[in-house]
Design a protein around this nucleic acid. Structure first.
Length: 247
DNA sequence: GGCCAGGCCCCAG
DNA sequence: CTGGGGCATGGC
C-alpha cells in the first residue's frame, strides 16, 4: 500500500501544516521550517520519526482490513495514513482550540497564536509558542485573537503546563486524569491529546462525526469492536465519513 | 442569514 | 449519573 502524505497531514490530527501554492506542505516544527511534498519517499530523521515511518503500517492495515468491511472501504479509499508523533504541548493547545470549532478556524487560531506569541523563523513562518512564551499572556490577549470562551481554558493549561507536560512519563489512566483536571479538557480532547500527542494508539476519540459513524454504521457496537486498533480505526472512520459522507 | 463546528462547563433533576 | 442550555467566533 502507498503512503498518503497529504491525507496524513490533513486528516484532522495536526493543525500545523499548510499547503503552499507550489504544492509543497510546510510547517514550523522544533523551530525549523519543514517542507515536504506528495510522492516524497525519503525524509530526514526528524520527519521520519514525526511521520511514524518506522512502524509497520502495511501489516497493521492488512489486519484491520480483515476486521471489518467498512474499515476495508475506508482504507481502500484513503490509502495508507499514519498517526503522527507530534509535540505534546502543540497538541494540547491545538485540541483545546478545537472544541465546538471547525478545522479551518482552528488552523487560523493556531497561526495567530504562533505569529503573536511564538518565535519568528523567517518572514511568514513562526514557531508555535512554548509555555514560557505564554507565561504573561492575559485573558484579554487571548480573546483579542478570537479564541472566545476558550480563553480561560488556555490560561489554566498554561498555568498547569509543567503538570501537563509531565504526563509523558505516566500511565494512560494517570495521564488522562491530569489532562482532564485542566479546565476545557474533557474526555474527547483528552483522547485526542493522548492519541495524537502521546501516541497512545488504543485511544478512540469520539467527536460529532465519530458519533454519527457509530450510530449509522456500527449500531449496537462500541470502540471495543476495533480492538486493538482503536486509534487508527478511528482516524480512518473520521476521514472517510468527512470526505465520503454517509450513505 | 442561520446553522454548524474533532466539546465542555455548569446546573438542575 | 444523565441531560440540556449556553458559550465566542467565523466558515459556509
Amino acid at each position: 500500500m502507498k503512503f498518503e502524505l497529504e491525507n496524513t497531514l490533513f486528516c484532522g490530527q495536526s493543525f500545523s501544516w499548510r499547503k503552499c501554492d507550489d504544492g509543497n506542505f510546510k510547517a514550523v516544527l522544533e523551530n525549523k521550517i519543514h517542507c515536504v511534498i506528495e510522492g516524497q519517499s525519503e525524509f530526514d530523521p526528524f520527519m521520519t520519526h514525526y511521520l511514524d515511518n518506522e512502524f509497520d503500517y502495511n501489516g497493521t492495515l492488512q489486519e484491520i482490513t480483515k476486521l471489518d468491511p467498512i474499515l476495508n472501504s475506508a482504507i481502500k479509499e484513503c490509502g495508507e495514513i499514519h498517526i503522527l508523533n507530534q509535540d505534546l504541548w502543540e497538541t494540547v493547545i491545538g485540541f483545546m482550540l478545537s472544541q465546538n470549532n471547525n478545522i479551518k478556524r482552528i488552523e487560523g487560531l493556531y497561526d495567530k497564536m504562533s505569529k503573536t506569541f511564538g518565535s519568528k523563523i523567517e518572514d511568514g513562518y513562526y514557531s508555535f509558542p512554548r509555555p514560557e512564551q505564554l507565561k504573561n499572556v492575559t485573558e484579554y490577549d487571548l480573546r483579542s485573537l478570537g479564541v472566545g470562551f476558550r480563553a480561560p481554558y488556555l490560561l489554566d493549561a498554561i498555568k498547569r503546563s509543567d503538570d501537563i507536560l509531565s504526563v509523558v512519563n505516566l500511565s494512560d489512566e494517570k495521564a488522562d486524569k491530569i489532562l482532564q483536571d485542566t479546565k476545557g479538557i474533557g474526555p474527547k480532547v483528552s483522547a485526542c491529546i493522548r492519541l495524537f500527542g502521546l501516541h497512545n494508539m488504543e485511544v478512540f476519540p469520539k467527536d460529532v462525526w465519530i458519533k454519527r459513524v457509530m450510530s449509522t454504521w456500527f449500531p449496537g457496537k462500541d470502540e471495543d469492536y476495533f480492538k486493538p486498533y482503536q486509534g487508527l480505526s478511528q482516524q480512518y472512520l473520521f476521514l472517510y465519513a468527512r470526505t465520503h459522507g454517509f450513505e
